[in-house]
Simulated assay, not measured.
Amino acid sequence: MRSTLFSTAAAVRILTSRQGIRPPELGDRRFLHPGPLRWLRALGWAVALFFLAAFSSLPLTEVLGHLMPQTGAWKFAASLIGALAALAVYALAVRLAEGRKPSEIALKPLLPELGIGLLIGAGMFAAVMAIMTGLDLYEIRSLGAAPIWVAAGRAAQSGVVEELMIRAILLRLVWRAFGPWIAFAVSAALFGFGHIANPNATVFAAICIALEAGIMLGAFYALTGRVWVSIGVHAAWNFTQGYLYGAAVSGGDFGPAVASSTARPGFPEWLTGGAFGPEASLPALVVCTTVGLVVMALAWRAGHFSKPA
Rank of each mutant, 00 (worst) to 15 (best):
263 A>V: 06
253 D>K: 07
183 A>R: 04
118 L>V: 00
254 F>Q: 01
184 F>D: 09
156 A>C: 14
233 V>Y: 02
179 G>I: 04
70 Q>F: 12
75 K>H: 11
40 L>A: 15
103 S>G: 05
123 G>Y: 05
108 K>A: 15
183 A>V: 02
212 E>N: 14
92 L>F: 00
148 I>W: 15
247 A>T: 10
296 M>P: 06
11 A>K: 00
236 A>T: 12
92 L>E: 08
278 P>R: 09
104 E>Y: 13
287 V>G: 03
187 S>K: 00
26 L>H: 10
128 V>D: 11
25 E>R: 05
183 A>E: 01
77 A>Y: 04
155 A>K: 01
201 A>E: 10
62 E>D: 13
54 A>Q: 11
186 V>C: 06
171 L>G: 06
235 A>R: 02
14 I>H: 07
11 A>T: 05
167 R>M: 05
55 F>N: 07
25 E>K: 08
94 V>R: 01
31 F>H: 05
90 Y>E: 00
28 D>H: 14
51 F>L: 14
266 G>W: 13
50 F>Y: 15
117 G>V: 12
123 G>W: 04
76 F>I: 01
269 E>T: 13
90 Y>K: 02
77 A>Q: 09
224 T>A: 12
293 L>E: 03
194 G>N: 08
223 L>A: 05
155 A>E: 03
270 W>K: 01
211 L>I: 14
233 V>A: 06
186 V>I: 15
28 D>N: 09
2 R>G: 05
76 F>R: 02
233 V>I: 12
250 S>L: 03
68 M>Y: 09
254 F>C: 00
193 F>P: 06
285 L>Y: 01
297 A>Q: 12
192 G>R: 01
95 R>A: 12
164 L>C: 06
288 C>Q: 11
142 S>G: 13
68 M>E: 09
39 W>T: 05
180 P>C: 13
80 L>Q: 07
60 L>P: 06
6 F>N: 10
286 V>R: 02
97 A>H: 02
214 G>W: 10
252 G>F: 04
187 S>V: 05
211 L>G: 03
59 P>C: 06
22 R>M: 11
237 W>M: 01
286 V>G: 09
139 E>W: 09
200 N>G: 00
24 P>W: 08
62 E>A: 15
